[in-house]
Measured scan of single mutants.
Amino acid sequence: SAVVMEEGSPGEVPVLVEPPGLEDVEAALGMDRRTDAYSRSSSVSSQEEKSLHAEELVGRGIPIERVVSSEGGRPSVDLSFQPSQPLSKSSSSPELQTLQDILGDPGDKADVGRLSPEVKARSQSGTLDGESAAWSASGEDSRGQPEGPLPSSSPRSPSGLRPRGYTISDSAPSRRGKRVERDALKSRATASNAEKVPGINPSFVFLQLYHSPFFGDESNKPILLPNESQSFERSVQLLDQIPSYDTHKIAVLYVGEGQSNSELAILSNEHGSYRYTEFLTGLGRLIELKDCQPDKVYLGGLDVCGEDGQFTYCWHDDIMQAVFHIATLMPTKDVDKHRCDKKRHLGNDFVSIVYNDSGEDFKLGTIKGQFNFVHVIVTPLDYECNLVSLQCRKDMEGLVDTSVAKIVSDRNLPFVARQMALHANMASQVHHSRSNPTDIYPSKWIARLRHIKRLRQRICEEAAYSNPSLPLVHPPSHSKAPAQTPAEPTPGYEVGQRKRLISSVEDFTEFV
């Protein structure tokens, strides 16, 4: 048969007729292969192709491409040299491709048809291009793949890379869960390890502090508590009631339409708007009261037996805890006409967050109470924005700035309102402590230090009264110190430094 060459192609190359033996071998191979691939376009007849790359030819070592076609129900084999250009295909004639002069020997084609199974398996396991790669995943090629499931790999992101949580363990979102698992493993320790309690022994800490320079003076030496005195035992138990972190309780009120001037209507609300609910979820963490331990979680007086509701929101960081007394989460009882059960919590909070959804101005004093010092007013606006402002009593104007209003988005509203309420509550605590000038409020841990110092002074006084020969370590507060001759004046800087060093040991009130 003659071949018409394309323009620009090399000279004529004689194409030899395939021997009958080659056709029989390739026909047997075509019957084993699956003929249901995917359909081509209507211009080209339905056909199945599979590209198999052999590394070497037997005796020649030339890479070839073998295409199996099922045109007219008769499979045909096409061998081509890759750099050459194939002729145009037609549905009426068999596929013809040019070969190099080196394939002119018909014996070479017979060798190609009689490829060993080793070469076929190696060509099938190679990388296939384009559409033949999808075909190689079918059941027909499963014989050339190794048996057994593939090893499982770690989760992959859409980009093909490992997620960040699997790369950096410290930033993994499941870090707290692993800590819980470690605690569970520790709890399952053997009885021999049960006595080993991690941490620092208080006796060891005391020993280090006792021999430090801070205890060089007799006034700073630790003293032993009497065991037989019940009054001192009660004082030590009272110390446990003062937490070592700051605590805040903040009221949250929802004002519906037409309720801006009605205290009873505001306290009777059992739910609010959708934006109000989203605002609550951002204030803190939802907790169930019956599962809380009052000595570990500050509840601000809420009952854990269901008297004040089942849930509330709280927030904490390293040095403070805040609980929100939310009116809509507290039960509304029919027998309580004046809502006294709610007001006994909300009316005693220094700061209230008022979500004013009424469309009218909310005035300070609508919720009557002796300790309502500051109101954080949240007014929802259009386009997911809110107006946040402050209202306070006249005696609080020096501590709280009420002249600045803020426009905040719904997303950042819980954070801004919480921070403003916490700052206002700190100012309210300082303002409330002014009624007792001898006990200015600095912080909870300073209050613990003052309680310890008062307890020490009482013990020293009782020891001096029981044994008059012992001198008083600290003179009583009601006694007057003996007159001392004025010492020589020293520079102001040295006096300030000495006073600062003494105050650092005794108390921190002056620095606050």
Rank of each mutant, 00 (worst) to 15 (best):
E461K: 08
P331F: 03
D382C: 04
N386G: 05
Q310N: 08
E461I: 09
V323N: 07
A447G: 14
D439P: 07
M420T: 06
S409Y: 01
A405P: 14
A427V: 07
S244G: 14
N356S: 00
E384Y: 05
V351P: 00
D240H: 06
L413P: 00
P414E: 00
Y245L: 14
H271Q: 10
D246I: 05
L501T: 14
H271E: 10
E263D: 05
R450Y: 05
E263A: 05
L399V: 11
V351T: 04
F508C: 14
S477V: 15
M330I: 06
C305I: 06
T332M: 07
L455M: 15
K453S: 08
Q293L: 10
V430M: 11
Q497Y: 09
F371Y: 12
Q457G: 09
G256D: 05
A427P: 01
P482W: 07
A251P: 02
K406I: 15
G347C: 15
D295V: 04
G306M: 06
H375M: 15
K394T: 13
V323L: 12
V378H: 00
Q370M: 14
P243G: 06
D240V: 02
V297Q: 15
P380C: 01
A251M: 05
A417M: 02
L329E: 06
S231G: 12
P475I: 13
Q310H: 08
C385A: 07
L455Q: 09
I266D: 03
G369D: 08
L390R: 02
S219M: 10
V505T: 13
A483R: 08
D317F: 00
I440P: 14
Y254F: 04
I326R: 04
N356M: 00
A447F: 05
F350Y: 05
D349K: 04
R498F: 10
R434V: 09
P468C: 11
P468E: 13
V473Q: 15
Q259H: 03
D341T: 10
L470P: 15
G272H: 02
F279R: 00
R454K: 14
L422P: 00
K444H: 10
R411A: 12
D240P: 05
R500W: 07
A447D: 13
L299S: 15
G284P: 01
D349T: 10
G282L: 02
I223V: 12
W315A: 05
T379H: 04
A417L: 02
E494K: 07
L280A: 03
I377V: 15
S428Y: 05
Q429M: 12
N412F: 03
Y313H: 05
V473I: 07
V297A: 15
K499I: 07
A483E: 13
D361L: 05
I459P: 11
P437F: 05
R450E: 13
G282D: 02
G284W: 05
E278Y: 04
Q293A: 13
G365D: 13
H423Y: 09
E307Q: 14
L399A: 06
V351D: 00
C305D: 14
E488F: 08
K221Y: 15
G492E: 10
H248W: 05
D334T: 14
V297E: 15
H338V: 11
R434N: 11
G256A: 13
D341N: 15
M330W: 04
F415W: 03
K249T: 14
D349Q: 05
C292P: 12
Y274E: 06
D410Q: 01
E228A: 06
A265I: 02
V404K: 07
I377N: 05
P489W: 10
H338M: 13
A464H: 08
F350N: 03
G359R: 08
I440F: 13
R450Q: 07
V430E: 03
Q230L: 11
P442C: 06
D382T: 04
A447C: 11
G300D: 15
D295F: 05
Q230S: 07
W315H: 06
H431D: 03
E494A: 10
H474E: 15
R339S: 11
F324W: 02
V404Y: 07
I266L: 03
P471S: 11
A265M: 05
Q429F: 07
L267Y: 08
S229V: 10
V408D: 00
S477E: 15
R285S: 15
Q293H: 15
Q370R: 15
S229C: 10
D217M: 15
L422I: 09
Q419S: 05
Y254H: 00
T438W: 07
R450T: 08
T402F: 05
D341P: 10
Q321P: 04
P486D: 09
L346G: 05
R411T: 11
L280P: 00
L239C: 08
I440H: 11
A322S: 05
Q391C: 07
P294G: 12
E288H: 10
A327M: 07
G272T: 03
E270F: 04
S443G: 09
S229D: 14
L264C: 10
S504I: 07
D240R: 05
H432M: 09
S389V: 09
H338F: 14
S433D: 06
